Amino acid sequence: MKYKNFPMVPRVVFGRGSFSQLNEILMPKRKNSEAPFIFLVDDVFENNKKITSQIPTLFNDQIIFIPTEEEPKTDQVDVLVEKIRNESNEIPSGIIGIGGGTVMDLAKAVAIMLTSTGKTEDYQGWDLVKNEALYHVGIPTISGTGAEVSRTTVLTGPDKKLGINSDFTPFDQVLLDPELTNGVPKDQWFYTGMDCYIHCVESLNGTYLNAFSQSYGEKAGELCHEVFYDGNLSEEESQDKLMMASWHGGMSIAYSQVGVAHAMSYGLSYLLGTRHGIGNCIVFDHLEEFYPEGVAMFKKMKARFGIELPTGLCANLTDEEFDTMINVSMGMEPLWENACGKNWKDTITPEKLRSLYEKM
Score class of each variant (00 low, 15 high):
K219Y: 12
S166Y: 01
I348K: 00
Q239N: 06
E235Q: 07
P10V: 15
G146Y: 00
F298E: 01
T324M: 14
A245Y: 11
A261D: 06
E34A: 11
S33Y: 05
C200V: 15
W189E: 10
E337F: 01
G97R: 03
R354M: 10
L162V: 12
H248Y: 15
K160E: 08
A107H: 01
C224F: 01
N280P: 05
L309W: 04
S88Q: 12
I198P: 04
S269G: 15
A254H: 00
G206H: 02
E358P: 05
I142A: 09
T274K: 01
S53W: 07
V44T: 10
D43S: 14
K342W: 04
L155K: 00
L313D: 02
L209D: 01
K83V: 03
Q21M: 11
S256R: 00
A339P: 02
A296L: 09
K359Y: 08
F228S: 02
P350T: 12
A133T: 06
G94T: 03
W126T: 09
E179F: 11
A296G: 05
E132K: 12
C196R: 00
H199F: 06
D346S: 08
G250I: 08
A339Q: 02
T311P: 04
Q54L: 14
N89C: 13
W126M: 11
V103D: 01
T57R: 12
Q76K: 14
P170Q: 04
F305T: 14
I326V: 05
T117S: 14
G146R: 00
N47A: 13
S246T: 05
L114S: 09
I326M: 07
F59H: 06
Y270E: 03
I164V: 15
G279C: 09
M301H: 08
P7A: 06
I253W: 06
I164S: 05
V149C: 06
E236A: 13
K29H: 02
A245I: 09
I139H: 01
T156F: 05
L223H: 00
S265K: 07
P170Y: 00
M8E: 11
A315C: 10
V227T: 07
F14G: 10
E82V: 08
T207G: 03
G99T: 12
Y229H: 09
E202L: 08
S213G: 10
P56M: 06
G17N: 13
T152S: 10
V77Y: 06
S329K: 01
M194V: 10
V137F: 07
E218L: 15
G312R: 06
G100C: 10
E320M: 03
V137A: 08
K299V: 07
G217T: 03
T207N: 15
S166D: 08
Y255S: 09
V328Y: 01
L176D: 02
P292A: 11
Q239P: 08
P178V: 13
